[in-house]
């Protein structure tokens, strides 16, 4: 079978200056996008199950909160000392909200909150606390572990790196 020159040129292009320029621009664009805008993440741990399973993949979409405020129920990435290790958590309280857990149920501003995304629940009990200005309250969707083993709480908003896709 003989390939037409246009198909052959598409799959096996001749190495010239134009091709090298296209490869360089594509490579640089990918580097910038996947390093600063859409950071690929491999999820390790079960704190967000069943929404995100251990070993699955997602992206951190950094520009999400550039012009938008963090909302309740948003899933956010919380950085540690950099962007190579981040916690994936759900926002359950904004500044000024009072957060409490009673027998595993979330009580926000004195009202019980229905959380359809929570499938595993232990009878957590946490005294009410008010979220300070410039902070949010985050927790994982998997409440099936003991409260002492689950990393959650009050976090400064400047620690939020972005939203999550998908």
């Amino acid at each position: 079978m003989k390939l037409s020159p246009s198909i052959k040129n598409f799959f096996l292009p001749s190495l010239n200056r134009s091709l090298l320029r296209r490869i360089l621009i594509t490579g640089l664009s990918c580097y910038l996008i996947f390093t600063y805008l859409l950071i690929p993440m491999r999820i390790q741990g079960r704190s967000m199950e069943p929404t995100y399973k251990d070993g699955s993949f997602a992206f951190c979409w950094r520009p999400k909160y550039l012009y938008a405020e963090v909302k309740r129920s948003d899933i956010v990435t919380v950085r540690l000392s950099g962007k190579n290790t981040m916690f994936l958590k759900r926002v359950i309280g904004l500044s000024g909200d009072t957060i409490e857990f009673k027998n595993g149920m979330l009580i926000r501003n004195g009202t019980e909150v229905q959380e359809p995304y929570v499938k595993y629940r232990n009878p957590w009990n946490l005294k009410p606390r008010t979220v300070e200005a410039g902070h949010v309250y985050v927790v994982g969707d998997n409440r099936g572990t003991s409260m002492s083993r689950h990393r959650f709480g009050h976090v400064n908003q400047n620690r939020i790196m972005g939203g999550v896709i998908p």
Partner: peptide
């Protein structure tokens, strides 16, 4: 260890910030 940065606030002193990951 990940995301490690080192600063030298004064002579003969260093401040290191890092993330320890346990698996």
């Amino acid at each position: 260890f990940h995301d490690t940065s080192i600063a030298f606030p004064e002579e003969n002193r260093a401040a290191i910030t890092t993330t320890l990951r346990l698996t």
